[in-house]
Each structure stands twice: as structure tokens, then as C-alpha cells.
Amino acid sequence: MYEQIAFYLFSVLTVTLFLITVMSKNVLYAMTSLAAGMVLISGFFFILGADFLGVVQLIVYVGAVMALYSFAMMFFDATRNIKEKSTHPALVFGLGGMSALVLVMMFAAPLYSEKIQAFYPMHPEAGNAQDVGIVLFTKYLIPFEVAAVMLLVAMIAGIILAGKKMDVSFTQDLSVDDEIMKQKDAK
């Protein structure tokens, strides 16, 4: 009963919030609704018994990724509304919906066969975090290490890309900066 209420509440709210993300003209509204939708998606994970995945979703997505987006927002002009000219909106909606439906049917069709067996079955008595840890550090150890190296590469790439010309301001009026520098020189 409670599971049903939670499921329908979360699904209606996530779909609405992500629609706002996709349709909004304001970057700040889009980002805020994306963050709220991600919090609610972690609610789905908690209903499904994937506690560790829910916590990781909260920490990594809502904590790290959204913080990164909001820091990057300082480089862009976020207060102005985005002007986008959309060509054939009905065509885009039709094509998007159709191709998503075809993709989902394609990938979901094998699920309804009865031949699927669990490779790594869950142990409800052990708890989700212990289960995840055992499988992650035995069967998925190499992908885990590769993911660690990939995150390191991404971190260095992010620092190098964003760190170029950090001393030049691009959001402020440049003449103001020049005047400040002249005043400093005069002193």
C-alpha cells in the first residue's frame, strides 16, 4: 500500500520536474528542477531495496554533479533567459517519443523471457551495502579500477580545460577591470 503511494507520488513528481528541466527557458529553473528530480529518483532506489545505490545517487549526483553545474554557471550568464528557435516542435516530439518507445521495447523484450537466471543473487540477511561490496570487489574489480583511472583522467582534464586563462574575467565588463588595474598601478 505505502509502496504504491510512494511509487506513484515519486513517478508523477519526477516526470513533472524533468519536464520543467527540458522545457524551461531559464537555466536556474532547469538546474533546480533537475536536482530535485534526482533526489526523487534516489527515492525510487530506496523503494527498490538498493540502499547503497540511493545513497550514491544522492552524494554523487545531487552533491557533486549539481554543485559542479552551479559552479560552472558562474562562468555563464545564467540570469538571462535563453532564446532558442525551435524548428518543427511537433515533429521533434513525435520522433523523440517514437524512437524512445522503439528503444525501450527492443531492450525490454528479452526481459520477459523466462530463461533469465540471477548471476549474483542478493542475500537479504546480509544487507545491501555488504552485498554490493562483495560483488564489486570480487567480480567487478577490474571495471572498478578502470573507472577510478577514468575519474582521475576526467579530473585532470577538467582542471586543465577550465584552468586556462583563469586570470582573465569574461563575465565582467573588461574596462572596469582595466580601471581597477590602473588604480592599483597608480598606488
Binding site: V56, Q57, V60, Y61, A64, V65, L68, Y69, A72, A147, M150, L151, V153, A154, M155, A157, G158, I159, I160, L161, A162
Partner: peptide
Amino acid sequence: IAIAASEVAVGLG
């Protein structure tokens, strides 16, 4: 999730 995090870092750069 790991791939999404690194994608965001490089993409925002």
C-alpha cells in the same frame, strides 16, 4: 553514475 560524473567534469571544462 561514475561515467556521468566524469562526463560532466570534462564536458563543463
